[in-house]
Amino acid sequence: MTKKMAIIATKGTLDMAYPPFILASTAAALGYDVQVFFTFYGLQLLKKDLSDVKISPLANPAMPMPVPMPVFVQMLPGMESMATMMMKNKLKKKGVASLEELRSLCQEADVKFIACQMTVDLFEFEKSDFIDGIEYGGAATFMEFAGETDICLFV
């Protein structure tokens, strides 16, 4: 019988966007039937335009920095954009796929993306902001699939 994996993606930052897409695409390549349920900030990962997906050095003490940086410097305007740009350059240099690429590889491999309808309404997102080929559902929709999975993760 086909193995199954379900992931709940709740984070909308650049670093936390990677695990759901990496695991979902890899599981699909291994023959798993995969669903990812995007809720709260995770919904950002379904937007057509992923430029709002950023990384902040603030409150992120484990983030490797080229030079030690006091917290009050991390708060300055532009620091988030700079950290995001640096991280994206590093990812590219190391041959790590972009989020867009991993996401489309997931879709090509028939990973099912489900957007949490409640949080779409809560944040007043427009369905036209999201990529095509996704479904909208609630907790019960997720449970129906999650209840039969071999792997179920909360990211």
Partner: peptide, 13 residues
């Protein structure tokens, strides 16, 4: 060459 996890696996597939 030059690709990092999980791309080698995805491209192999």
């Amino acid at each position: 060459r030059g690709l990092n996890c999980p791309l080698p696996i995805l491209k192999t597939k």
